[in-house]
Write a protein that binds this DNA or RNA. Structure first.
Lengths: 199, 199
DNA sequence: TCGAGCATGTAATTCGTTACATGATTGA
DNA sequence: TCAATCATGTAACGAATTACATGCTCGA
């Protein structure tokens, strides 16, 4: 039983395909045109990535039968894929997720709402916030200790990084309060707006 | 004449080695323990990376002759390497540098002071600032157009990204004013503290 | 003498990048 | 009929990750 390790791009693809069944071309456009501009968008990444996911049984592609237009292979999540996506999203946040600019963690969060619901988002944000605070403390200590001996531009670069984490920290507070508002609204309106909103 | 394309890690290594001749082990520790925690630090990245740079003639390794301790190979920058580093640092900032979290650009900036001097840093910051402002506008427009249709967590993720760029934007202002102060100080003290500071 | 930390490497694998190739469809 | 755009691929290559292997040196 192989470990079946899925690269980040694979999860990005699964999350998008879960949101809305899509072709490779659709997905490339998402990466190229939306705020997901980090991530590849090159055909040499997307198509092999989709093939790997299909070979692993996480997505299934079916050829669309529309009159006109060239054939497009529409991918959608299989139950297995949905399960894998859930597992990935439900992983506890670790210190590691905070280090390398947290791209991984933010990707997870951006899909979390639809798949795991608001409660999981709140928990995630709380844990994330704690980790950010801890790392922020480390960075500030580092700067206090070494800042004076560093070339100006290097010190400024570190300060920029600290500012980035401070932004992240403040963002978690805003995000948490938005979730509290959303939950209050939902309680009042008695499920008038369900959770996911696939369309 | 091959293109000799050097990966980002290669430039990180060159910048560090220029700052202070180092062994592979030293460099690994820098990546593992300082604020440069993004970047690999694994031996399978560092040692082959150093070998490639040496094969390209950018750095040269000499075995240290200290009594005691196991032999360590100390690398230092060759003239060719210094030239290559300069060329990389002097590249104009492009829109592309702003997209993928600007890790590349910040790395360049952090070495810039020592190699190109404060004037280049100021120019860099001014260009960088403009590009950030432009991309920030795009992201905000994107959010205005699509924010309402996005799941809450996805929208929040975009807002977090926007906050990150806003931080970057504000940081450029602070950095610029620090450079102006530094220049004023230097003028007053008549080169008492030169530019580089290799030690 | 034994383990911890110093120090350097190597091999298998996987993945992304760049660049190229192909063909279908639509509108001018 | 020609260009643009839709849509899917493929091949070569480079580089990072993981995991393993090795040997030195110092202190307890």
């Amino acid at each position: 039983m192989k470990a079946t390790t899925i690269p980040l791009l694979g999860y990005a693809l699964m999350g998008l395909v879960h949101h809305k069944p899509s072709s490779g071309y659709d997905l490339r456009k998402v990466f190229a045109e939306t705020a997901m501009g980090n991530y590849s968008s090159s055909p040499g990444a997307i198509y092999p990535g989709l093939e790997r996911l299909e070979a692993g049984g996480f997505i299934r592609g079916t050829v669309e039968e529309t009159g006109g237009m060239r054939r497009r292979r529409l991918y959608s999540l299989t139950p297995r894929g949905r399960n894998e996506l859930k597992k990935w999203l439900a992983r506890p946040v670790e210190r590691n997720d905070v280090l390398r600019d947290a791209g991984d963690a933010m990707l997870r969060f951006s899909f979390m709402d639809q798949v795991l619901g608001p409660k999981a988002c709140v928990e995630f944000l709380q844990d994330f916030r704690k980790l950010i605070a801890a790392y922020l403390g480390e960075l500030e200590a580092f700067l206090r200790k070494n800042g004076a001996d560093m070339p100006l531009s290097a010190r400024l670069a570190v300060e920029c990084g600290i500012g980035g984490y401070r932004n992240l920290y403040e963002w978690t507070a805003r995000a948490l309060s938005e979730y509290q508002n959303a939950q209050a609204t939902r309680r009042n309106s008695k499920h008038k707006t369900p959770a996911g909103g696939v369309r």
